[in-house]
Design a protein around this nucleic acid. Structure first.
Length: 575
RNA sequence: GCGCCUGUAGCUCAGCUGGAUAGAGCAACGGCCUUCUAAGCCGUGGGUCGCAGGUUCGACUCCUGCCAGGCGCGCCA
C-alpha cells in the first residue's frame, strides 16, 4: 500500500470534481509537522491559480468533494490553501497488520513489468578493482534488487574491459615469466603490481615494447597461443573481481559478464549499418557520426568517432554494439548505465546515434545514472602516496579490521567466530552505506574515517536497531499474534506511519536510481524505533500493550531487514 | 572558448514534481546505564542556503547574469 499514491488519486479526483483540469496534480507530501497531520496536499493553490479562483475557496470545494472517511479522521484547510490530512489510527493499524502478514510488506507488484538491463561495475580487467569502482558496483546492485523486488525483469550486465592495446604488454610480460617456475602465478596474485611492472618494462625496454605491440596484433588476429595466454589472464582477473563481489555481497556472477571482446565480431556490421542509415561521415580519415545536438567550440558539431583512420574501432562502436544486443537479444525496455559522469557526453552521443540508427526502439528508455569522481581530502583526484589508487580489496579489509577491533571492545563475550562474522558484516555494510547514502552527481570526497565510521547515520546504526529487536524477541517468548495493534503514545504513532512509507521510498528509487532515498528512509525508521524503544517499554508493559508493541517491533525488524536487503546489506541477530 | 555537474552549519551531507519556523550525522558542550544491547537516547550552541536580479500569494528548489570548484570537448576507455 502506497499511501501517497492513494491520496494522490483521491485528492486529484476531488480537484477535478471541483473544476480543475484532468492533468492536475494533488502534490501530496509527507507533512513535516505533526500538527499538519501525516500528509498534506499542496496542489490546490496551483490549481486555483489556473482556474483564477481564490485558493481557499477551491480548497473548501475540494474538501466537500473528497471522501476520505474510510482512512482519515479529518481533512482541514490551512494557510493559503493547504489540505492537511489526519489519518485514522485504526486505519493505520489495519495497514500495519496487512504488512505484517504479507511476505513483501504489502508492497504492490508493478502493473506493467519492464525488462530492465542494468550496466554496472564494468571494471577494466587489465588492473585490479580500486575504490573508484565502488559506486557503480554497489549502486547498480541496489537498483537491480529494488527493480526485481517490485516485479521488473532485470538483467545485469557487467561490461568488463578485456580488450585493447594494454593487453599486449601484459601478455608479453606473462610470456616472459612463464619460463620461470611458479613465478607467474605468484605475480598474478597482485594484478596491480603486475600491471605496474609490465608498464615499467614497456617504457624502459625498447625490445619489450616491440614484443608487446606484436602481441596486440597477434591477439587481434586470433593467434591461438596468444588467445590462450589472454584467456588465462582474464580468468584470473575475473576471479579477483568475484572475490571482491562476494565480499561486498554483490549479486554479479560470471553469467552477468558480457565483456567488450564479445562485441568484436559485430563491430564491422555496426559501421556498415550506420553507413546504410546515412549517419556516417569520413573526416580526416576517420569514420564519424555528426549530430547537430552536440556542438562544441565555435558552434561546430562534435563528432563521435566510430572507426579510426587506421581501421580500428573505439569504445563508442562497442557501446553501440552492446546497445543493439541489449535491445535485440535481451529485449530491453529500459537500459540503465551506472557510469562515471565524465562519460556523459559520450553516452549521450551513443544514445542519440542508437535512436537515429534504429538500433533501439524510439520508446526504449536509455538513462545515464551518472555519479562524480572520487576525490581526496584536498579536493584533488584521489591517489595514494605512490601515485596509484587504493585497491578496493584493501579498503574492505581495513573496514573489517576496524569493525573487529570495535566488536572486541563492545561485545567481548561473543565467541571469536561470531565476533569475526559480526566484524565482516558490519565493516562491509559501513563502507557500502557510506557510499549508497549520498546522492552526488558531482564529485565526492573519499575519507577513510567517514567511510569506516560506525556511529550516527551509518549502516551499523540500522543493524543495531535490528539486533536490539531480535534481542527483545529472544527474551519475549511467544506473543499473541491476534493481539490488537493499538497506537497510543506519540512515539508509537510516529513509528507506525514511518513503517508504512517504505513503498514511497522504493517508488522514487526505482524511478531515479537513487538508493540514498532508501538509506534516508531506513535511517529515519531506525531513529523512530530508537525513540520508541527508549520511551515505551515493551516487555515490562501490561499484556495488551506489550503484545501491541511487540507487533510494532516485529514489523520494524521486518521492514529494516527488507530495506537493508534491497541495499545489499546484511542484518545481524546480535552485535 | 563551448558544454555538463556542483556550491546549504566548523567538517561530511539530506532537503522528492516550488509550500508553512531549512534538517541529519560528525565535531563542541550538558544530561541519561541496579529497568528490553550506551554502536544508543534526551538536550544546548552553530546557517545572509556562493553573489545579484527576476517570476510567484510563496523560491534552497524555477529563469537570467556573475563568482568559485570539478569534469568533458577527434582517432585511449
Amino acid at each position: 500500500m502506497n499511501i501517497r499514491q492513494l491520496l494522490d488519486q483521491r485528492v486529484s479526483n476531488a480537484l477535478i470534481s471541483a473544476g480543475a483540469s484532468k492533468d492536475v496534480s494533488a502534490v501530496i507530501k509527507q507533512s513535516n509537522k505533526a500538527q499538519f497531520g501525516q500528509y498534506q496536499a499542496n496542489g490546490v493553490m496551483g490549481a486555483a491559480k489556473k482556474l483564477k479562483m481564490n485558493p481557499r475557496q477551491l480548497a473548501t470545494q475540494v474538501v466537500d468533494a473528497l471522501d476520505l472517511s474510510d482512512i482519515a479522521d479529518k481533512v482541514e484547510v490551512a494557510g493559503p490553501g493547504f489540505l492537511n490530512i489526519h489519518l485514522k489510527p485504526e486505519w493505520l493499524s489495519q495497514q500495519l497488520e496487512l504488512a505484517l502478514n504479507s511476505d513483501k510488506l504489502n508492497i504492490e507488484q508493478i502493473k506493467q513489468p519492464q525488462t530492465v538491463v542494468i550496466d554496472y561495475s564494468g571494471p577494466n580487467l587489465a588492473k585490479e578493482m580500486h575504490v573508484g569502482h565502488l559506486r557503480s558496483t554497489i549502486i547498480g546492485d541496489a537498483i537491480v534488487r529494488v527493480l526485481r523486488f517490485i516485479g521488473h525483469r532485470v538483467i545485469p550486465q557487467n561490461h568488463v574491459g578485456d580488450w585493447g592495446t594494454q593487453f599486449g604488454m601484459l601478455l608479453a610480460h606473462m610470456n616472459d615469466l612463464q619460463s620461470v617456475d611458479n613465478e607467474l602465478s605468484m605475480q598474478l596474485s597482485d594484478l596491480e603490481a603486475f600491471y605496474r611492472d609490465a608498464k615499467k618494462r614497456f617504457d624502459a625496454e625498447p625490445d619489450f615494447a616491440k614484443t608487446a605491440r606484436a602481441y596486440v596484433v597477434k591477439l587481434q588476429a586470433g593467434d591461438p597461443n596468444c588467445l590462450l595466454l589472454w584467456q588465462q589472464f582474464i580468468d584470473i582477473s575475473l576471479q579477483h573481481c568475484e572475490d571482491v563481489y562476494q565480499r561486498l555481497n554483490v549479486l554479479l556472477t560470471r553469467n552477468d559478464v558480457m565483456p567488450e571482446s564479445a562485441y568484436n565480431d559485430d563491430l564491422p556490421q555496426v559501421i556498415a549499418d550506420l553507413r546504410d542509415a546515412g549517419l556516417l561521415t569520413e573526416d580526416q580519415g576517420a569514420q564519424c557520426v555528426f549530430l547537430e545536438e552536440f556542438k562544441g567550440k565555435d558552434n561546430k558539431i562534435l563528432p563521435a568517432i566510430v572507426q579510426k583512420s587506421n581501421g580500428g574501432y573505439l569504445y563508442a562502436t562497442t557501446d553501440l554494439a552492446a546497445l543493439r544486443y541489449r535491445y535485440n537479444k535481451l529485449h530491453a525496455d529500459r537500459i540503465l548505465y551506472f557510469v562515471d559522469a565524465r562519460q556523459s557526453l559520450h553516452l549521450n552521443q551513443v544514445f542519440a546515434i542508437a535512436k537515429k540508427a534504429h538500433f533501439v526502439a524510439p520508446e526504449t528508455q536509455l538513462e545515464h545514472m551518472a555519479f562524480g569522481t572520487m576525490m581526496g581530502k584536498n579536493g584533488k583526484p584521489f591517489a595514494t602516496r605512490d601515485g596509484g589508487t587504493v585497491k578496493l580489496i584493501d579498503l574492505l579489509k581495513e573496514a573489517e579490521q576496524r569493525a573487529f577491533d570495535l566488536v572486541n571492545e563492545k561485545n567481548p563475550d561473543l565467541d571469536e567466530a561470531e565476533r569475526k562474522a559480526v566484524a565482516q558484516t558490519v565493516g562491509i555494510a559501513a563502507v557500502k552505506y557510506a557510499d549508497l547514502s549520498k546522492n552526488r552527481s558531482s564529485d565526492y570526497i573519499f575519507n577513510w574515517d567517514t567511510m569506516l565510521s560506525f556511529e550516527g547515520n551509518t549502516a551499523p546504526y540500522l543493524q543495531y536497531a535490528y539486533a536490539r529487536i531480535q534481542s527483545i524477541f529472544r527474551k519475549a517468548g511467544e506473543f499473541d499474534h491476534n493481539a490488537i495493534l493499538n497506537l497510543i503514545e506519540t512515539p508509537e504513532k510516529q513509528l507506525a506511519i514511518k513503517l508504512l512509507q517504505l513503498p514511497e521510498a522504493i517508488e522514487i528509487v526505482s524511478k531515479d536510481g537513487t538508493p540514498n532515498i532508501l538509506c534516508n528512509y531506513l535511517f529515519e525508521l531506525a531513529g523512530n524505533f530508537m525513540t520508541f524503544y527508549e520511551a515505551c517499554p515493551i516487555l515490562k508493559a501490561d499484556k495488551e500493550i506489550k503484545n501491541s508493541r511487540l507487533k510494532l517491533a516485529k514489523l520494524t525488524a521486518k521492514t529494516l531487514k527488507t530495506g537493508l536487503d534491497l541495499l545489499g546489506i546484511k542484518t545481524l541477530e546480535r552485535m
